[in-house]
Nucleic acid binder design. Structure first.
Lengths: 190, 190
DNA sequence: GACGACATCCTAGCAACGCTAGACGTTCTG
DNA sequence: CAGAACGTCTAGCGTTGCTAGGATGTCGTC
């Protein structure tokens, strides 16, 4: 393989990431409904068809953004857990989760609300998806046989709180009270 | 007002409901992405513009379906709560909620996931929206000052469990175990 | 260095979408 | 009976995601 085609491959990989970050920025500033293939192509200064040489379709682009998001979420939760004392880990991780969701609403939408190509709970599940969930699991002692179940319910509750308050179905204030209640109730199971 | 215009008003109201039920049926059999204004107009055997003489747009049609859904959900939860002994009410209502969500996925989507015109937690909130939430509140004793907060968190958890399992982000089995865990943990706060 | 083979990228266009203007026939009113 | 008012449809606008096919430039080979 020549040096030129190596360079082209590098440029291609770079452009691949450029599309992803452009989609994310556009979504974060103007919302996902503003992310059209035309506007996206404009942003990266290429024509529409090049998007399709990198991704199978718009859904695949959203999925790529979501995948990045899962990686960041996992790192964010991990930092929070490790910075806290063990008995405070549960609370810290939950707080970090709500922070992440409210500070990056567009990213969170790509991860949990918009339709994507990502497959969960399967052998092909990307590691980043698993990693975030594992942070919740790690808040419970290893000898607890039901820790996975606890983590699932905890995660569900946090997700529910996030989207119901985001969409105005429950009052947006009092988030801290909800967190308090949730953590103290669930922590008893630790 | 003449008898003729009365008849026309009746027919108009009938057609209004016809559009709503047609949208709902189409969504339940083929999913919401199949509900286009053209197909909907075909179904009710009118042209597209008549849809817009009844509703402000597609979102308003989805909202109307969702509103019906909230009424049915409230009734469903109420029946479950009243049929159960007081100490079992919490569990019965939660179970009824999950039942509703899994048996009418398209309806649930309209109520909680698709963008709608509905306003929540405001003075203009339709009674049906309030009624469902109140069923959760009623599971806690009236002298509990934090029962609204408990209901919010409980509802959030159930919603989270619903959408995360629906989208495959948590395994679809074990729903009953999650319900058990959630109820026993929350019920302690009663 | 010339040439066919190949890759890359863009112009142009398709079908489907939500939505609306304007024409047309029908019905009500003076 | 004339004309206003209403209800409905045809036709079309602008936008969407996506793709076919041609132009342009680069590659390995002689």
């Amino acid at each position: 393989m020549s040096a030129i085609s190596e360079r082209r491959e590098r440029e291609r990989a770079h452009r691949h990431q450029l599309i992803i970050t452009a989609a994310r920025e556009l979504a974060e500033t103007e919302g996902w409904e503003a992310v059209t293939t035309r506007r996206l192509a404009d942003r990266v200064e290429y024509s529409q068809p090049v998007l399709y040489s990198h991704f199978n379709g718009k859904e695949a682009i959203v999925s790529a953004v979501a995948l990045d998001g899962f990686g960041e979420l996992a790192a964010h939760l991990r930092r929070a857990r490790q910075a806290a004392a063990p008995e405070e880990a549960l609370r810290a991780v939950c707080l970090a989760y709500l922070e992440f969701a409210t500070e990056r609403p567009a990213l969170y939408q790509a991860m949990f609300i918009l339709p994507t190509d990502l497959t969960f709970a399967s052998t092909e599940t990307p590691p980043a998806l698993r990693a975030g969930f594992d942070e919740f699991v790690s808040c419970f002692p290893p000898d607890n046989e039901r820790r996975e179940l606890f983590a699932e319910v905890l995660w569900s509750a946090l997700h529910g709180i996030t989207v119901l308050s985001e969409s105005g179905r429950i009052p947006p204030d009092r988030q801290e009270d909800r967190l308090d209640f949730l953590v103290t109730r669930i922590a008893g199971a630790r």
